[in-house]
Design a binder for these strands. Structure first.
Lengths: 174, 174
DNA sequence: CGGAATTGCTTCAGGCCTATAATATCGCGC
DNA sequence: GCGCGATATTATAGGCCTGAAGCAATTCCG
């Protein structure tokens, strides 16, 4: 098990490293997120979660998927189903999305961007991307590529750890 | 202005890079955060914000600072003052922290870890660190060092951008 | 000294988020 | 056809979070 050896070596080499790294990651993420939230609110009078919903619906439509179900949306946005109900309700109030029962399955609701929603999103998208570009602007192209790769490895590491926990829980049950 | 040149070069070289990177950063951060929240809840019946408050108070006491004011706490935790009021109120209810008026300044409240709070924190801290160590466990020591450095540079980039915005706003006012 | 601006904190409305429970519908096997 | 587990969604309680408004104590300064 070379992975475990690596883990132990890293632990010996630099205790507390992970915790420090995690706090720094969280702080970076929160710093950017707060700024984006605040600007979306000031410039466009919209919240980040609502913007995310519009962006996901638009992304789906570019993949020729016209409208998403509540479950599919909550999976893509990584929020709980219950949370989405209120979020979509507010977006429907604002006429930015529509919600309609599926003809195939009376349980499912299909959420779509309205014309107003698409127009609003198209106005926001380039400005939003400009903000991010500017916030990240002092990172060189190499740094960005490196950071992207490392975050990919971190994501894999987390997923592996979570999968292992799952297995252990199942073993415990048997 | 070599910084601006770098910025433009990066833009030409890889448009949309920053946005992709940002989404990946956010997704990593949320993945870990959600897991930590859920475990704190299951294992210790506490929320992440409350845990953060206890950890900050403990960190301060290690720097020989006995107790923090509401403002100092909200600055360290990077949350608004109004938010902290309710959070501390709930922690006081649980007897994990105490809150007392300052003798020097009758406006300020001084928040301290209680013995119960310190005991609870000491029980949680190593377990919490173990979770993080395991989630990050597949990253080599080199990867961790690289990631740490890159996140540091990202943080600097964001701060520089925010500072520039500030300046522009001030110019606009004059 | 005595306002005036500042600082520290709380209150409030609005919104996001989770976990849990409840409701409705679907699909499958008998 | 009928029941039953699975699936899709909503409802609810509790908590976190922000921005804005407001109150009280302090400090600044003429």
């Amino acid at each position: 098990m070379s992975r475990t050896d690596t883990k132990l070596a890293a632990l010996r080499a630099a205790p507390h490293d992970s915790l420090r790294l995690w706090l720094r990651l969280l702080s970076c993420s929160n710093l950017v997120e707060r700024e984006v939230r605040s600007r979306l609110r000031e410039e466009f009078d919209i919240t980040l979660p609502r913007f995310d919903v519009l962006a996901q619906l638009d992304a789906a439509s570019r993949d020729s998927v016209q409208g998403l179900t509540m479950s599919e949306l909550s999976r893509r946005l990584m929020v709980t189903n219950g949370n989405l109900t209120g979020l979509i309700e507010r977006l429907v109030q604002e006429r930015l999305v529509s919600r309609a029962a599926s003809p195939r399955d009376r349980r499912t609701q299909i959420v779509r961007l309205t014309k107003k929603g698409k127009t609003a999103l198209d106005a926001m998208t380039p400005v939003h991307e400009g903000w991010i570009e500017r916030l990240f602007g002092d990172l060189s192209a190499d740094d960005r590529a490196d950071l992207d790769a490392l975050l990919g490895r971190l994501r894999d590491s987390v997923r592996v750890a979570l999968a292992e926990e799952e297995e252990e829980e199942e073993e415990g049950e048997s």
